[in-house]
Design a protein around this nucleic acid. Sequence first.
DNA 1: AATTATTTGTGAAATAATACACAATCGCCT
DNA 2: AGGCGATTGTGTATTATTTCACAAATAATT
Lengths: 220, 220
Amino acid sequence: MSTEGKPKAIPQATLERMATYLRIVSDLDNLGTERISSSEMQQIAGFSAAQFRKDLSYFGDFGTPGVGYSVKHLRQRIAKIMNTDHTHSVLLVGAGKLGSALAEYDILRQQNFHIMAIFDTDPDKIGRSVAGITVHSAEHIHDVNKCICARLGIITVPVDVAQQVANQLVDSGVEGILNFAATIIKVPAHVKVRYFSMKRELALLAYFLEHPFDECLEAE
Amino acid sequence: MSTEGKPKAIPQATLERMATYLRIVSDLDNLGTERISSSEMQQIAGFSAAQFRKDLSYFGDFGTPGVGYSVKHLRQRIAKIMNTDHTHSVLLVGAGKLGSALAEYDILRQQNFHIMAIFDTDPDKIGRSVAGITVHSAEHIHDVNKCICARLGIITVPVDVAQQVANQLVDSGVEGILNFAATIIKVPAHVKVRYFSMKRELALLAYFLEHPFDECLEAE
DNA sequence: AATTATTTGTGAAATAATACACAATCGCCT
DNA sequence: AGGCGATTGTGTATTATTTCACAAATAATT
């Protein structure tokens, strides 16, 4: 329907939903589903059908009126948009309980994000093997990443060394950081940071325990 | 400055930031800092000073003009608002790598959220001990929670049993769920769900690798 | 080929969130 | 006691996002 690519500003919220759409269509594709309509997506994802269509419209045309969307096609297009149509190397810093769990739990099975090296600042952990990968000293992030050229990093170290580790990651060429340490880290403008804090999530849920009817919509 | 409590609708985004403010003032308090101004908060949190003041204004008056905010007072007030001024019992379902790591890593040290019971659907895991807590069968969630009365739950089971586990949690009285399984779960309207997916976060970071100058603001 | 039942894509309207700007307030200093 | 510099709290303006509503497009049917 539209004619050409649209270099408009994409709402942050749209991008977050795109990642969810991608997961859903990937699941549907793996299940063998061939078609999906925006109203079916509403059922599955919890966002409105119009929201779904509007989100996609920022990136061009995806479906065919009267029919819906090809799941396979949607998956390919969104994967390309999200830049997950190929493998990304990832550095993991922090070989503690959480870091080890992440290395084994999610990544190795879910394609396209490969943890290529693990680092730690704790001398006791250096040299040991986690999820089949040797743990290096965090001092060597720069050197090791010369070979790997990873642009993504995950921080699972204690708060007091998080900033230092972030600096080293950035220094080694990392441009996207997922930070599990409960502290805000300062990075150059070209580096994107996403945060996750268990306590923060639980605090939000605790709030809603006393305010059950605020904001019941919003799904993933 | 204002006269009375304000039962206005609180923006979701404000609540998310409130949780961050709470972490920051808690840290400052522990460090012995006594006062903070909104502009100092801007430095630390990355949100604008006006944003900080506006967010607080939804909940009443907190500071004194010309002086700033008492860190201790702010901490108490926000903790009360977020409902984290007392301990919450939490149920954890899924004693795999991630669940075990969460049980040990974050919660036990960070006060006010206590994992009181761990469950799993895998017979091999039932009866074993994780982080000093015996793993029960997920079938017994309802019974066990009769004693515990937890209103918060964490799901770290595989996607195919996530919905079933969610149902059992809700059935046992849980009203807030933190879901690490990569699937959207359906719950009654009074139950709040927060999602976390590693792949989703990494996909977003991957997007920004190719779009480094979109949305550089936004901190935690 | 025309008709109907669907469903997309999107401009415009409605809603929500953020940034701005400044009056009100406070502590300090003289 | 009054003036000054600093900082809050908030009404308003601005910007961003979501919702709505419908024309355009398609397949199926007759």
